[in-house]
C-alpha cells in the first residue's frame, strides 16, 4: 500500500517538474502567438497575458502590407526561392561527394577527408570578407547568386552525415551489383541513392532551416528591399526607429515560423534521428 502511494507521489513530482519547466520553455512562443492577435491597445497592457481579450486579425492584414510598398508576399517568395534552390543543391552535391568519400578508395582520400572535417571547425567570419569581395567582383551583389551558388559545392556537415549513413549499408550490395556489370556511377544512382533517402531528407530539413533563418548572408549581399528574404524583412520591419506597430510585427514573425513548424511536425522522426546519429549539430 505504502509503496504504491510512494510511486504515485514520485510520478506526480516527475510530471509536475517537467510540466513547470516545459511551461517556461514554451511560454515565449505562446506569448508571441497570443500577442499577434492582440489589439494595439492591449499589447502593452497586461503584456504577459497569453489570452487576447478578443481575437484580432487586423495585425495580420496590416503586417502583410509590408513596407516600402512591398508586401510580405514578395519576401516570402524570395525566401522560398533561395531556400528551395540551395537546399536542392546542398543535398544533391553532398550525396555525390559522400559516396565518393565512403565507397571509393582513391589516392588522397584520407587527406581530403581531413581537410573537409577541418572546415567544419572553421569560423565563417574568416571567409566572409574575401567572399564578399569575390562576389562583388563577379557582379553578384543584389542577386540571389551568392546565397544559392555555393550550395552546389557540397556541405561538409551533410557530407559527413550522409557518409555515416552509407557506411551502414552492407558493401555486399555494391559487390553483387559490380559482378552484374554495374559501374561505380550506376551503383551510386541505382543502389546507394535509393537507400540513403532518409539521410537526404534529414539533410534537406536542416538545410531548409539554416537557409530560412540565415540573416548574415542576405544582410551582406542584398540591399534592395524587393530582394529581401523574410529574415531580413523582419529585421527591417522591426527597426525600433522605423516602426511602432508591434502587433503587425508579431503577426509577421508568427507567419515566418509557420513553414519551420510545419516541417517539424511532418518530419519530426527524421529530424530527431538525424540529430541523434550525427551528434554534430550545436
Amino acid at each position: 500500500m505504502k509503496a504504491s502511494t510512494d510511486k504515485r507521489t514520485k510520478t506526480f513530482v516527475y510530471h509536475g517538474t517537467i510540466l513547470v519547466l516545459g511551461f517556461f520553455m514554451i511560454y515565449p512562443v505562446l506569448w508571441l502567438i497570443a500577442s499577434s492577435f492582440k489589439d494595439h491597445s492591449e499589447i502593452f497592457v497586461n503584456a504577459h497575458s497569453l489570452v487576447p481579450k478578443r481575437l484580432h486579425f487586423g495585425n495580420y492584414i496590416e503586417g502583410w502590407r509590408g513596407f516600402g510598398r512591398i508586401s510580405f508576399a514578395t519576401f516570402f517568395k524570395n525566401s522560398f526561392i533561395i531556400v528551395i534552390l540551395s537546399t536542392i543543391g546542398q543535398v544533391m552535391s553532398s550525396a555525390v561527394v559522400a559516396y565518393g568519400f565512403s565507397r571509393i578508395k582513391f589516392k588522397g582520400r584520407k587527406f581530403w577527408f581531413v581537410c573537409m572535417i577541418a572546415t567544419l571547425m572553421l569560423p565563417a567570419q574568416v571567409l566572409i570578407i574575401p567572399q564578399y569581395i569575390l562576389f562583388n567582383k563577379l557582379g553578384w551583389l543584389n542577386s540571389f547568386k551568392p546565397l544559392i551558388v555555393p550550395s552546389y559545392f557540397g556541405m561538409p556537415f551533410f557530407i559527413f552525415m550522409i557518409m555515416q549513413f552509407i557506411q551502414g549499408i552492407p558493401t555486399e550490395l555494391d559487390q553483387s551489383a559490380k559482378i552484374d556489370g554495374c559501374g561505380k556511377y550506376r551503383i551510386f544512382f541505382v543502389i546507394i541513392l535509393p537507400l540513403i533517402i532518409p539521410a537526404l531528407i534529414t539533410s534537406a530539413i536542416f538545410s531548409f532551416y539554416w537557409k530560412w533563418e540565415d540573416f548574415l548572408g542576405p544582410l551582406l549581399y542584398l540591399q534592395k528591399t524587393k530582394l529581401y528574404p523574410i529574415s531580413l524583412a523582419l529585421k527591417m520591419f522591426s527597426d525600433p526607429a522605423a516602426v511602432t506597430n508591434w502587433g503587425a510585427m508579431f503577426a509577421m514573425s508568427v507567419l515566418s515560423l509557420v513553414p519551420v513548424f510545419s516541417i517539424f511536425v511532418i518530419f519530426q522522426k527524421y529530424l530527431v534521428e538525424g540529430i541523434s546519429t550525427s551528434g554534430l549539430k550545436g
Binding site: 561527394v97 559516396y99 565518393g100 581537410c115 574575401p130 561505380k184
Partner: peptide, 30 residues
C-alpha cells in the same frame, strides 16, 4: 573513368572545387 582514382575525384569534385573557391582562396586572401 571506372578506376578508383578518377572516379573518386569525379565524385568529390563538387566539394573539392568549392573547397578551393570558397575556402582556400578566401582564407589565403584574407
Amino acid at each position: 573513368f571506372e578506376s578508383d582514382n578518377i572516379a573518386g575525384y569525379i565524385f568529390i569534385a563538387p566539394w573539392l572545387l568549392g573547397f578551393f573557391i570558397f575556402t582556400i582562396f578566401p582564407i589565403l586572401s584574407s
